[in-house]
Amino acid sequence: MTAARPRFVRPRWVIARAVAVMALLGAAGAVRAAPPAGPPVPPVPSNSPTALGYSAQGADTCLMCHRTNAQVMAIFRSPHAQPHNAASPFGPGGLQCEACHGPGETHVKAFGMKPAGIVVFGPHAPTPVARQNAMCLACHKSVEHAWLTGAHASNDVSCADCHRIHGATDPVRMQATEASVCGKCHAAVVARFREPFHHPVPEGTMSCSSCHDPHGSLGPHMLVKSTVNSTCTGCHAGMRGPFLWEHQPVTDDCLNCHVPHGSGLPALLKEPTPILCQQCHDLAGHPSVPYGPQGLPAGMPNPYLLIGGCVNCHSRIHGSNSPSGQALMR
């Protein structure tokens, strides 16, 4: 016996064809591309008073004043200061400090007294967030970062809100410290990780970016993969099946039964069993029976209620590969 083919909804082909067109055009651009001579020149606002020019001697001009600032000089310990890398601001032909901070001629002429178009980074910087980010995105064009269509971009998050540019290390790129950077804004999620059962993010053996792409993704919840299930089964690969006997809510969405960040219940369940299972199962017989507190050890201990409830018997809840796994009990 063979299953009938599922009926596909029409929008699938609209999206698929559009994607194909864009991919081909992108590929065509790749084939025709000539290697650029040096790193990109970042955009300069046409209405800026600095629509003028760059400094006379690049970083040497800037460092005449700023070299005593340890935070500024820390850039030379960072990945941005790679003198042999043509894509680096400090590489051959690079615009050095002005690659990120913009043309500095006016600033120099004002003896540094006025920012004069200099791009200043950070959460409370006078430079608009969009302008700050444009400087970063001029070089960081990687396609995996769909920044502009992501939630962070549309909520005015700047790159420098999360990243430390002037430094040997960037806390948000280190597994042990990444979550503390994300937690500066996502306080409610941090709180969830303090619940008794959670993914081991506070312990540092996982990080937020194990599941989420902070630079934006085309999947839901800015996940690193296209769906919730494909993200979860990236680690929990034994649950992805296909099983001989499937459990429909499992193939549909892991979040039908689990919460991702933290829960007061084992296995990050949304609700305790058997109540959780009874939200769907109302089969004549024991699934429809309300198991009340009379089934606790002080009364008549009930195997349908205690420990795992339903999964004491239906333990193959994610799917069974036994020919006798029809009720997910083998």
Binding site: Q57, G58, M73, F76, G93, G94, Q96
Partner: peptide, 12 residues
């Protein structure tokens, strides 16, 4: 940028 010699740059 031909005159941008980066003499004051302290590459680690």
């Amino acid at each position: 940028t031909s005159a941008w010699t980066c003499k004051l740059c302290v590459f680690y």
